[in-house]
């Protein structure tokens, strides 16, 4: 749980660190919109290259971004495989005949069981899982002997592959951009930036300051609650609960045994925190002076101009149809 990287500021000195948080927030949103508007394969690769350049010139280690992406690798691969396997639009690119026989089905089952037993001893579990899935498909193709129970094909279509590519690259770019934002911006500044951007919502009687404070306090208490969850898990583990293994039913019971105390503790904490805030003269909606103030510089104007240009460029490319 301590390996969570999203939302963690890492001190640094590049131009990204010197930028106003408002610029970074608006630029991130504009770039995300741009990425969703891109339709061409080459433009997407260019966008990916630009993000990579941003990482290099922004002095952010790729390893850090990878750590941010790691919890989502499974989701990315699952999305990719789902599109490749089930999207059947466009030209057929590749086809593999599959024969389901008693022999290869038995071997496939043995492979899956072996995977289930041996996965815990290996480091690269995801790769091992993918290799097992690939192995099962190859078995169905290259071992068609014995009593045949059924036939099928594994087909990859053009549309499936391109959609899978676009979804994956879009997700990678979005996560990378948000990781860049959180790595280079102190939570306090991020909060101030958000508050400043949301301020026009006052017309709709929405108090931006309160929303920003709620977000700030939530971020502040994430490590505390993770710590608390770890303590409860250790306490449960010392009484024989195994959070790693077990049947699905056991896992549900284990999660409930973790969630109930977590809820009680969170409510207790929020009650105490509300008391502490009130006694320190906090009144919701009341005007406050601020310790931190934001500075807009030429760098921000330039960065925002570039981002707007990128968005307009993408829109024009889409309109022209290149």
């Amino acid at each position: 749980m301590n390996r969570i990287v999203i939302g963690r500021y890492i001190p640094g000195n590049s131009f990204l660190y010197r930028m106003d948080p408002r610029t970074k927030l608006i630029a991130m949103i504009l770039l995300m919109v741009s990425v969703f508007l891109i339709q061409s394969f080459i433009h997407m690769l260019v966008a990916l290259l630009l993000v990579a350049l941003l990482l290099v010139f922004g002095g952010i280690s790729v390893k850090r971004v990878y750590l941010g992406l790691r919890p989502l690798v499974f989701l990315l691969i699952f999305t990719f495989l789902f599109q490749v396997l089930f999207n059947r639009q466009g030209d057929l690119l590749y086809s593999l005949e599959l024969h389901y026989t008693v022999l290869n089905l038995s071997i496939a089952m043995a492979l899956v069981i072996m995977w289930g037993f041996t996965k815990r001893f290996l480091r690269f579990r995801l790769l091992y899982f993918l290799a097992t899935v690939a192995g099962v498909f190859l078995l169905f193709h290259y071992l068609p002997f014995g009593i045949v129970l059924g036939e099928g094909t594994f087909s990859v279509y053009e549309q499936g592959l391109s959609t899978a590519f676009f979804i994956m690259v879009r997700l990678v770019i979005i996560i990378t951009l948000s990781t860049i934002l959180t790595i280079t911006t102190k939570p306090t500044d991020l909060n101030l930036g958000l508050e400043s951007i949301l301020r026009p919502l006052r017309i709709l009687r929405i108090n931006a300051e309160e929303i920003a404070m709620i977000i700030a306090i939530s971020l502040r208490y994430i490590p505390t609650l993770l710590d608390e969850a770890n303590k409860i898990m250790l306490a449960q583990a010392s009484r024989g609960v195994d959070f790693q293994e077990g049947k699905l039913k056991d896992k549900v019971i284990q999660v409930v045994s973790l969630l109930v105390p977590m809820f009680i503790i969170s409510f207790q904490r929020s009650d105490d925190l509300a008391n502490a805030m009130e006694t320190r003269s906090f009144v919701p909606g009341q005007k406050r002076t601020r310790l931190h103030i934001l500075h807009w510089s030429g760098l921000d104007t330039t960065a925002l101009a570039f981002t707007c240009a990128a968005l307009i460029g993408v829109i024009l490319l889409r309109v022209v149809g290149w």
């Binding site: 939570p187 207790q268 906090f282 310790l291």
Partner: peptide, 22 residues
């Protein structure tokens, strides 16, 4: 732990002062 409002020590000490409009 339940009375630390700010993200850093500086912010936490500032919290009451901001409320008092110093």
């Amino acid at each position: 732990d339940n009375q630390f409002v700010g993200v850093t020590v500086r912010d936490d000490i500032a919290f009451g002062l901001e409320n008092l409009r110093i």
